[in-house]
Computed example of a mutant assay.
Amino acid sequence: MVIKFFSQTTGFIYCILALFVIIVLWKKGLMSRKIRSVFLFASVLSGFLFFSPVAPYQFQTVFLRNLSSHGSPAVFVVFGLLFIAIVSFVIGRIFCGNICPVGALQEIISAVPVKKRGKYLKKYYVFIRFFVFIAFLVLAVLFSISLIGILGIKDFFTLNMLSISFYVFLIFVILSFFIYRPFCRFICPYGLFLSLLAIKSRYKFRRTDLCIDCRKCETVCPVDEAKAGDNKSECYMCGRCVDVCPVKGALVYSSEFKKE
Rank of each mutant, 00 (worst) to 15 (best):
M1C: 02
I13Q: 05
L17M: 09
A18V: 06
W26A: 00
L30W: 04
K34V: 05
V38R: 07
L40I: 03
L45K: 11
L49S: 02
F50S: 02
P53Y: 10
P53C: 12
V54Q: 04
P56W: 08
Y57R: 14
L67D: 07
S68R: 15
S69Q: 10
S69H: 09
G71R: 05
L82K: 07
V102F: 04
E107Q: 15
E107W: 12
K116N: 01
G118D: 01
K119C: 11
Y120T: 07
L121T: 10
I128M: 11
A135F: 10
A140R: 00
V141C: 09
I145Y: 11
I145W: 09
G149D: 02
I150Q: 11
L151K: 12
I153Y: 06
D155N: 08
T158R: 15
N160I: 03
S165R: 07
L170T: 01
V173G: 08
I174Y: 09
R181C: 00
P182E: 10
I187E: 04
C188P: 05
C188E: 07
P189I: 02
L192R: 02
S195M: 02
S201H: 02
R207Y: 10
D209G: 13
L210A: 09
A228C: 10
C241D: 05
V242Y: 09
G249F: 01
A250G: 06
A250D: 04
L251Y: 03
L251M: 13
F257G: 05
